[in-house]
Amino acid sequence: MLDQTAKPLVEVSDLKMYFPIYSGVLRRHTGDVKAVDGVSFNILEGETLGLVGESGCGKSTVGRALLRLYEPTAGSVVIGGEDIATLAPEALRKKRPSMQMVFQDPQASLNPRMTVAGIISEPLVEHTDWTAERRLERVLELMDAVGLNRRFANRFPHEFSGGQRQRIGIARALALNPKFIVCDEPIAALDVSIQAQVVNLLEDLQERLGLTYLFISHDLSMVRHIADRVAVMYLGRIAELSPRDALFANPLHPYAEALLSAVNEPDPNRARRERIILQGDVPSPANPPKGCNFCTRCPKAFARCHQEKPELVEVQPGRQVACFLYEENTAVGSTASVEATELNQQGETK
């Protein structure tokens, strides 16, 4: 799957997204919620990159910052040769058709007062000067592509089931023939029988249209099904970025290991993997630990973990891990920058 010769379509480097905290009478800027704190990865053309992690670790924020629905605090997002993070508004608008998003909640992402045809043709109205007939033709074509009955074109979103609504959302994302689609937990709000339909539809479309996906999810078995490579996020940083099979067979980062140990094994006869149960809570992203973000809960943490932040480095071909356990072997040396501005350290080992 991992074709090293393919060139990356999306290159994200050191992306940071901080949400400022204002407090006190004067509403002074007293800190930041570091939702995404220095994330770098590439997505190759035609590839699906899975992005997993627990709730609140910044997955969705990465997805939204990638399409510049948020203004990133720092870093660059190069999609097809242009840096999205610094593009001027009009150029960004021109760029929008090539990158689209499928949202988590199909109910909330469709305007209740517009018909299906209206919703799907909205991107066409924005970016083309087609006549109404031509737009309708394209809408019907898209409805066929996502498996919606053409007869439903003039219905309203509330008349559909969750899976159908998600198809409408996917059709809207496809309207302008994008190259890159961010799927922000597209299946989280659907029930299990529908999840498979939607995921298979996404795979099918990828095959036919040559799409590139960033597939954000917390459902590990779905990610295993659809993704080529998987990035595991923890508290705003990527812990491990590995090809799917390698990651699921042998997770390197202690957090990835713990996360994957929680996946249910469908076959009851197979020996159950021992579960790693993490102690404690995720630290606040407004005040992350001084060292490695995971050091407060890591069963393998040692002294250095509490002092420096590990960088994401390649430890095996195609596998990148941000952990000192592996850095020792590759002898990269200290690349971490010590953040001196932390007020409070939360780094005692459990």
Partner: peptide, 22 residues
Amino acid sequence: EREYVLAARSIGAIPRRIILRH
């Protein structure tokens, strides 16, 4: 803050149309 307004922004709709349509 609704997702459909966010969706319109991700499509690249200009504020005037977002206001009138959504």
